[in-house]
C-alpha cells in the first residue's frame, strides 16, 4: 500500500498525538460529560488509523500476525471482569458489580467509585478492537488463517 505525499506525512506527525490526547480526555471525563468508554475509544483508534493511512511503509512491519493488539484487547476484558469480581469479595453483601470504591463529591473528577476505571478499560479495549478490524480488512491481502 503506497503512502501519501510528504506534506500529508508531516502534518499527520503533528496532528495524530493531539487526536489521541483528545480521545483520552473524553474517556477520563466520561462520568461528567457525554462520551465515555466507547466514543473515546473510537477517537483513540482513529489516531492510529490516520498514521497507517498516511505512511505506507509501516505496513511491512504489520505483515506478520499482530499479537500486541490481541493481548491488549483480551487483557482489558479480563480486567473488567476482575474489577467486577472484587465487588463480590469486598462489598458487604456479596453482590457482583457493586460500587465499592469511595464515591467522592458529585461533579469532581475523582468521584463515582469504579466507573472511571471501567471507562478507561472499555476505552482501551475498543481502541484495540477497531484497529484490529481495520488491519484485518485492509492490510491482510493474502490468505491468513481466520
Amino acid at each position: 500500500m503506497k503512502g501519501m505525499t510528504i506534506i500529508v506525512r508531516k502534518v499527520t506527525q503533528f496532528i495524530a498525538p493531539i487526536i489521541f490526547l483528545f480521545g483520552i480526555y473524553i474517556v477520563f471525563y466520561g462520568h461528567l460529560t457525554p462520551g465515555g468508554g466507547f466514543a473515546g475509544g473510537v477517537i483513540m483508534a482513529s489516531a492510529f488509523i490516520l498514521q497507517i493511512l498516511a505512511n505506507g511503509e509501516i505496513l511491512d512491519k504489520l505483515r506478520k500476525e499482530e499479537s500486541g493488539l490481541e493481548f491488549l484487547e483480551s487483557g482489558a476484558i479480563l480486567g473488567f471482569i476482575i474489577i467486577a469480581g472484587f465487588g463480590l469479595i469486598l462489598s458487604s453483601s456479596f453482590v457482583f458489580f457493586s460500587n465499592f470504591i469511595n464515591k467522592g463529591v458529585i461533579g469532581k473528577l475523582l468521584s463515582a467509585g469504579m466507573i472511571p476505571l471501567e471507562n478507561i478499560i472499555v476505552g482501551t479495549e475498543v481502541c484495540a478492537a477497531i484497529t484490529t478490524i481495520f488491519i484485518a480488512l485492509v492490510v491482510y491481502k493474502d490468505e491468513v488463517a481466520l
Partner: peptide
Amino acid sequence: ALIPLYVVIPLASAFIMA
C-alpha cells in the same frame, strides 16, 4: 450468588485462552 457464574465463567475463560 452462584447464579452469575453461568455467564462469568465461560466469558472469563474465553479471554484467558486468548
